[in-house]
């Protein structure tokens, strides 16, 4: 049932690209990801077939860039900055504390699927370092305590809601 529904959605996205060029690959992948959240092996195979490139090539392309998720991301993506300004303001310790608190490494998702932790090379809010983004909201001048309470708050909100 689900897979039929999914393939209908996929067909709808692919229909927009009547005469797919090799250079459309990035846009198609992005559209697909926006709809499904991530690019599963099955989706990569189908898109590759459609565009006419090998699945290996598509995977090679998608895995090169940080924008594409090849695994299902957490509901909340925490992105910590480790640019120079954040680095000199102890971003390293912050990152280590988040790792310990969530018990995952950068790039991984917690088992309950709630958090994905990422580290970015610079988020461009250097004047207010250290910086952290959770989904679309930017938090500035954070420390481990603030982050922990943010995480706790999200956890609480999600456990009571469900």
């Amino acid at each position: 049932m689900d897979s039929v529904k999914n393939s209908n959605i996929l067909d709808k996205i692919l229909k927009k690209y009547a005469n797919p060029q090799r250079s459309d690959l990035s846009k198609i992948l992005l559209d697909v990801q926006n709809e499904f959240g991530y690019l599963s092996e099955e989706l990569i195979r189908k898109v590759s077939n459609f565009v006419g490139v090998s699945a290996t090539e598509t995977y090679g392309f998608a895995s090169f860039y940080s924008m594409y998720n090849l695994e299902k991301p957490g509901k909340y993506v925490i992105r910590a900055c480790k640019g120079t300004a954040c680095h000199v303001k102890n971003a390293n310790r912050l990152i280590r504390d988040i790792e310990n608190y969530l018990k995952i490494k950068p790039g991984e998702t917690t088992k309950d699927g709630l958090f994905k932790f990422e580290v970015s090379s610079c988020l461009g809010v250097c004047a207010l370092a250290p910086v952290l983004i959770i989904n679309d909201k930017t938090y500035t001048r954070v420390n481990s305590k603030i982050v922990k309470s943010l995480i706790d708050e999200i956890r609480r909100g999600n456990s009571s809601g469900s």
């Binding site: 250079s23 990035s26 846009k27 992005l30 090169f64 940080s66 924008m67």
Partner: peptide
Amino acid sequence: EYGPGAYICGEETALFASIESKRG
């Protein structure tokens, strides 16, 4: 055009590659 997130794409030829849907 959106940079798909790779520092190397600031280099012009790598930037072109990323627009052409290739590895940067």
